[in-house]
Write a protein that binds this DNA or RNA. Structure first.
Lengths: 342, 342
DNA sequence: AGAATGAATGGTAGCGCTAACATTAGCGCA
DNA sequence: TGCGCTAATGTTAGCGCTACCATTCATTCT
């Protein structure tokens, strides 16, 4: 007797569970679980019965319970500094395309270029038992470093290259800066101003500037830097152009930290009747489509953004599938697009 | 005898749990849980002890377990048709800003304009016990409709306006189409070609075209439509311009389905020496920053994208906090930006 | 003083699933 | 027929947390 197994349900609406499907199909719960997770381990006939039962009862699987039980969430934490910048969106698109194919779900976090915020996001995402972490850049707060060191799962640091604890996929920004500086020297420019917006935040632009400066100083040239407040992608570029023409009348070229700024400058020049590159040459970085559509076509450096995403995802997945865990670095390279603006 | 409570751990590395913190602090697990979830329900002194214990043992809370136990994940499923289009990225930015403030985590899904894919994503996200769903558009597959009807949580359909089951935040695309058509008529144009890319996918562009056609036909004018394959945002616009000039020499204006196409056309015209708007007027839709920087400045309609995201998030949060569940529609409106291109 | 309140804390029993091990079925071969 | 093997399926005990109710203790009111 007894039998007061009858307990009050905590949820008002009961969704069918694995047990309901199992009862319907006349098998055990674990068999249903196997149909969902490793179908090849179940006899086709059984599988068919179970699948019919799943349809019949309208079962929706509870991923939370599964993840808790298996201590494996199939979440990939992705942390980027900004969504306003199309560059990171393209990286995310690459990551998502690849991860989705393998049944992983991205948890997206946006730091707004704040390292403390980044640390907080990392903590939260670890709390979700993420299977891996993809984070932008190699610079993190100390607290964040400590958390990551004790974490057992794959960590991919993307966009730039450097010393890595685990996976590192990106390009050599200093080299990109050098490359463009050399290109400008090759075109005969000697007075080149480097223009960035909020360099303390976008420190990868700082790395490019360092490369740029190195090349110029090797030639005994100075490397003036103009670091502006950020107003809006294009507007800042336009403002920078005015400022250089006023305060650096000797300059013959501007090396912009990115294509948004450079494009803003070219469009402004166009409207003001300033001839590019005759009066002032303009170069950018990223190889955004817009730069290749304006007149003059922008000289820039193509960064393979979606490739970074795909390659990072591919390597993370390999590790999750059991590849060895020796630190690995992948240089995706870059390409100089010589346009008409220099 | 007995006493073989000694079981093998399933996880190799044991993270500290609530119970560990509780032991350290000399309280019960539920008290630690309260410190994390409703701190005001715990005496400050106890809270301090517990917080110290949390730090001491390096506790990272397991969100999966919490969500499972409480049947409340604090996940918001967000489904958009594309990440390549900056418009949706801005909506996501708005959603994320608002949701993050309230401790919700976005699960991002990308349908690539495929309604079956959308349905699949909805199912997956329900499996994560999402607290709410934000989905782009009002058109869904039948299977998807059925799933959503049985779902008990808030569903926000965004971008366009129409009959809604729950929450609907967007703008009236037909009206936007009418608005631009009237503007073009007002500027004296009578032969206006509407140009879209892959209209069957981007059906909201179709709604705008319907509004556009309505206005023209009221005036006894024809409303030719040019629907192109999608090549790349700007390239398709350039191609469309060529095609209109060749096959519709009588046309004096092109009403583009979006700013990307329109911008591509203007940049192409600039390069080819085609005068805009003298030879051909050009109008777009979305009010992207680039359109306001090119010469001539693009005539377009500003869609408040980040506002859509914020408003949607705000209303979803209100519902999650217990607001009544009567269907609600919010028209975010739009604004005609009369530029120099018409 | 005793009852009635309210605030703070604790005990117990799951949430729905899967890891680990146990058992059974199925098959080839001597 | 029976042995050994593998493939298929089942049993059990949690994963780490929170809902629900019970309990304790201090405070106020009659």
């Amino acid at each position: 007797m007894g039998g007061d197994k009858q307990r009050r349900n905590r949820k008002s609406v009961m969704q069918p569970t694995l047990a309901d499907v199992a009862r319907e199909a006349g098998v055990s719960a674990i068999t249903v679980s196997r149909v969902l997770n490793s179908p090849q381990a179940v006899r086709p006939a059984t599988r068919a019965t179970v699948e019919a039962a799943i349809d019949k009862v309208g079962y929706v699987r509870n991923m939370l319970a599964g993840s808790l039980a298996s201590a494996n969430s199939r979440f990939i934490a992705v942390i980027v500094p900004s969504l306003a910048n199309i560059v990171f969106v393209e990286v995310i698109a690459g990551l998502q395309a690849e991860f989705e194919r393998h049944g992983y779900q991205i948890l997206l976090g946006n730091t707004d270029y704040d390292l403390d915020r980044e640390c907080e996001l990392v903590r939260t995402f670890l709390g979700w038992s993420s299977s891996a972490l993809v984070v932008t850049g190699l610079r993190h707060s100390e607290a964040c470093q400590r958390v990551l060191e004790h974490w057992e799962h794959p960590v991919a640091e993307i966009m730039e290259l450097g010393e890595t604890r685990d996976l590192n996929i990106g390009l050599d920004h200093a080299e990109a800066g050098r490359c463009m500086a050399k290109h400008l020297l090759g075109r005969g420019h000697r007075q080149i101003v480097y223009v960035a917006a909020q360099l303390e935040r976008d420190y990868r632009a700082g790395l490019r500037f360092a490369g740029h400066r190195e090349v110029l100083e090797e030639q005994g040239l100075s490397a003036p830097l103009l670091d502006l407040e950020h107003l809006g992608q294009f507007e800042t570029g336009a403002q920078a152009l005015e400022e250089v023409l006023t305060h650096h009348p000797e300059a013959t070229a501007i090396h912009f930290a990115n294509d948004d700024l450079a494009t803003g400058a070219i469009l402004h020049a166009q409207r003001q009747g300033i001839r590019v590159p005759e009066e002032i040459a303009i170069a950018g970085f990223n190889g955004l489509p817009i730069g290749q559509r304006i007149t003059p076509r922008l000289t820039t450096i193509l960064s393979p953004r979606e490739t970074i995403g795909r390659e990072a995802a591919r390597r993370v997945i390999a590790r999750l599938q059991g590849a060895d865990r020796t630190p690995e670095q992948h240089d995706v390279g870059f390409e100089l697009l010589a346009g008409e603006s220099t």
